[in-house]
């Protein structure tokens, strides 16, 4: 408990306190009240970084959840029945493999694949695109990489969830002649709704916190084409030594995450 205070509670409170000061990391911080927050509200880079966060929520939470639902249901209710559960399990493992990588290593892999001069992707499609260096393309590239990275997680969770669904439901629907699509909408999706909430929540939080892939792939650039709040705060802490400003960014990010978590839990509660 003492350790917990020292490692989490006290640093967090210090961070909040620092966000009301101007401080370079050495010397005495100067109290400036809400100045950092006022500056933040008018800082265009800060707002773009949150827009990128929304894009990453799409890439890390929404798309993988939707694709994951279709894939899990197909593997479970179609491939598993027609080609055996081993085929389904093998495919599931293939989809899951990217998830086992440290996210920084996934970044290294794709940094190589997308390298403008020797990368494999340009070679496969006969293109000459600078995937991560062109401000118009960089964010889309990062999004695609994150879909690749995240996809396995919902597939595995949803397939585990489907195992607790009563098989009689599917049998009854099949006898009634319900098509695959109808079974998907009327049995699969409602039955594993708790899993959908968990995946959406955890992936949304992960997308809000995303740092590793941005650091490894683009460092927020080119320009601020892939800037996200966590990298923006890191930049202010350790490169621009605007510690007060960085703390304000981190505090806002923390608040957003806590609010999102509570909203999700409320919606989930009401849904029961």
């Amino acid at each position: 408990m003492v350790l917990f205070l020292a490692v989490v509670v006290v640093p967090f409170l210090m961070n909040v306190a620092t966000s009301f000061t101007r401080w370079s990391g050495v010397g005495t911080p100067t109290w400036i009240g809400f100045d950092n927050y006022v500056k933040l509200a008018g800082d265009e880079r800060f707002w773009t970084s949150f827009q990128h966060n929304v894009a990453l929520i799409v890439a890390m939470a929404i798309l993988p959840t939707m694709l994951g639902l279709v894939l899990a249901a197909t593997l479970f209710d179609y491939i598993g029945k027609k080609f055996g559960t081993r085929t389904a399990a093998g495919l599931r493992a293939a989809f899951y493999l990217p998830q086992v990588l440290p996210v920084a290593v996934a970044g290294v892999v794709w940094g190589w694949m997308l390298h403008p001069s020797y990368g494999a992707v340009n070679e496969i499609f006969g293109l000459k695109v600078n995937w991560l260096g062109d401000p118009d393309v960089a964010l889309a590239s990062v999004m695609a990489i994150m879909v690749w990275f995240q996809l396995g997680y919902p597939v595995v969770i949803f397939m585990a969830g489907l195992q607790r669904v009563d098989p009689a439901l599917y049998e009854a629907a099949e006898i009634d002649g319900a098509s695959w699509g109808r079974r998907f909408w009327h049995i699969t999706v409602p039955q594993i709704r708790p899993e959908v909430y968990v995946v959406l929540l955890t992936c949304t939080i992960a997308a809000l916190k995303v740092f590793g892939p941005i650091f490894v792939l683009t460092r927020g650039g080119p320009g601020s084409a892939t800037m996200v709040p966590s990298y923006f705060s890191y930049l202010n802490f350790f490169q621009k030594v605007n510690v007060g400003y960085g703390s304000a960014i981190a505090t806002v990010l923390a608040l957003i995450i806590v609010v999102v978590t509570f909203l999700f839990l409320r919606v989930q509660e009401r849904d029961r």
């Binding site: 917990f4 020292a6 490692v7 989490v8 509670v9 006290v10 640093p11 967090f12 210090m14 961070n15 620092t18 990391g25 939080i205 809000l208 916190k209 740092f211 709040p229 966590s230 705060s233 890191y234 802490f237 510690v243 960085g246 703390s247 960014i249 981190a250 505090t251 990010l253 923390a254 995450i257 806590v258 978590t261």
Partner: peptide
């Protein structure tokens, strides 16, 4: 409290931890 601590972004702890 423990659960909230787990969802907090590490960015909000990083600088004080670094300093301490």
């Amino acid at each position: 409290l423990f659960l909230v601590a787990n969802t907090l972004p590490q960015e909000a702890l990083a600088y004080p931890l670094y300093y301490l």
